[in-house]
Amino acid sequence: MIDLDLRSCELCPRLCRVNREEKPGACGCSARLLAARAALHFGEEPCISGSEGSGTVFFAGCNLHCVFCQNHKISRERYGRELTPARLAEIFRELEAKGANNINLVTPTPWVTEIIKALELYRPKVPVLYNTSGYERVEVLRALEGLVDVWLPDYKYADTELAARFSGARDYPEVAKAAIREMYRQSGNLKLNAEGKAVSGVMIRHLVLPLHLKNSFAVLEEIAEEYGTEQYVSLMFQYTPFRETRYAELNRSLTARERARAEDYFLRLGFQNGYIQEADSRGSRFLPDFNLEGV
C-alpha cells in the first residue's frame, strides 16, 4: 500500500518528497486543504451536469503547471479557503441536498489524502467523480479504488515535446496512458443510467489546442487503439486564451477550420460514444466565478 503521508509527498508523478507541513510541494500546496468553490455546476457534459447540475468542488493547486491553464486563479495562485476533512464531508452532504447529480472533485490530486479522510467520514449517495489532468500515479489511483465511481481524466498530449513545453512534464504521455489504464481496470467504460446520467466508468477528455491538431489526432488514435471506438470521449473546443503566454499560437482561440478538422477526424475514427463541447463567446459557462461559494 502506498504511503500517503504529506510529510514526504509522493502523491503525483513529480515525486517531490517535500514535507508539505513545512513548505509547499511541487503542486504549490501545503498540507492545508484549500477549495475555491463548491456549488452546482452546469458546464460539464450532459451526462455529468444534467438539468440538476454537478456538485462540483474546485480545489486549489495543481501538479501539472500548464501555461494555458483556464483556472489560473486557483491552480497557480492557489486561491481558496482552508477546509478540514470534516468540513469537506459536510460539503458533500450539502451538495447532495441541493439535488446534485454527483460529487465532482476537480483537480483533486494534491489533496488525495484529505479527500480519502472526508470520504471515510461520509460516502455520498450519488456518484463520486475524480476530475483530473491525467497526470496521476497508478499507486495513488489504487488507493482510491472503491471510493471513486466515475473517472474524468484529461488526455492532453501524445507528443512528449509539447508536454514538456506547455506543462513541464515530458513524461505526461506515458504517465497519462498508465493512469487511464488503471482507471479503466477499476471501472471500465462510462456507464449511464436510464436517465442518461453517468454512474460509473471512465470518460476521457481532450482539449484541442490551436495549431496542434497533429497532437489531437495522435491522442484520438491512441484512445481508439487502446480502448476501441465505443470508449466515451469528450472532444473539447472551448480553449480560451484568458492569459497571454510566450507561445504565440496559444494566444488565440481555435479557428473554425481547426474545429472542423478535429471533429472530422473524431468522426472518421468511428467513435460511437462521446461529446463535442463548444464554448460560448467568453468561455464563462465552463469557467465559474471562484468566489468561495459553498466552502
Rank of each mutant, 00 (worst) to 15 (best):
M1C: 11
L4M: 15
D5Y: 08
L11Y: 07
R20W: 08
E22F: 07
R32N: 11
R32S: 10
L34E: 07
A38T: 15
A39S: 13
L40E: 09
L40I: 08
H41L: 03
E44R: 07
E44F: 06
E45S: 02
I48Q: 09
G50N: 09
E52Y: 08
S54T: 11
F59A: 07
A60F: 12
H65N: 12
H65Q: 10
Q70N: 07
K73G: 01
S75F: 04
R76H: 11
Y79L: 14
R81L: 14
E82M: 10
L83R: 10
L83M: 15
R87G: 09
L95N: 14
G99Q: 09
I103G: 07
N104S: 03
P108I: 04
P110F: 12
A118R: 00
E120Q: 14
P124R: 12
K125R: 15
V126N: 09
P127V: 02
R137L: 08
A143K: 13
G146K: 14
L147G: 06
V150L: 07
L152F: 02
P153N: 03
D154N: 12
D154W: 04
K156Y: 01
A158F: 02
A158S: 04
E161M: 11
A164L: 14
A164K: 15
R165P: 08
G168A: 12
R170E: 11
R170I: 09
D171C: 02
Y172S: 05
P173T: 07
V175A: 06
A178V: 04
R181C: 04
E182R: 13
R185V: 11
L192W: 07
V202H: 00
I204S: 00
L207H: 03
L211W: 13
H212E: 13
L213C: 10
K214S: 13
N215R: 05
F217C: 03
F217N: 07
E221L: 06
E221Q: 11
I223L: 05
E225H: 11
G228T: 11
G228Y: 14
T229D: 00
T229M: 02
Q231M: 07
S234H: 00
L235E: 01
M236Q: 03
P241M: 02
P241T: 00
R243Q: 15
R246G: 14
A248R: 15
R252T: 00
T255N: 01
T255C: 00
E258N: 02
R261I: 03
E263I: 00
L269G: 02
L269H: 02
G270S: 09
F271L: 01
N273V: 00
G274C: 05
I276F: 06
I276N: 01
Q277K: 07
Q277Y: 02
S281N: 11
S281W: 15
S281D: 13
R282C: 13
S284Q: 12
R285C: 05
D289A: 13
F290S: 01
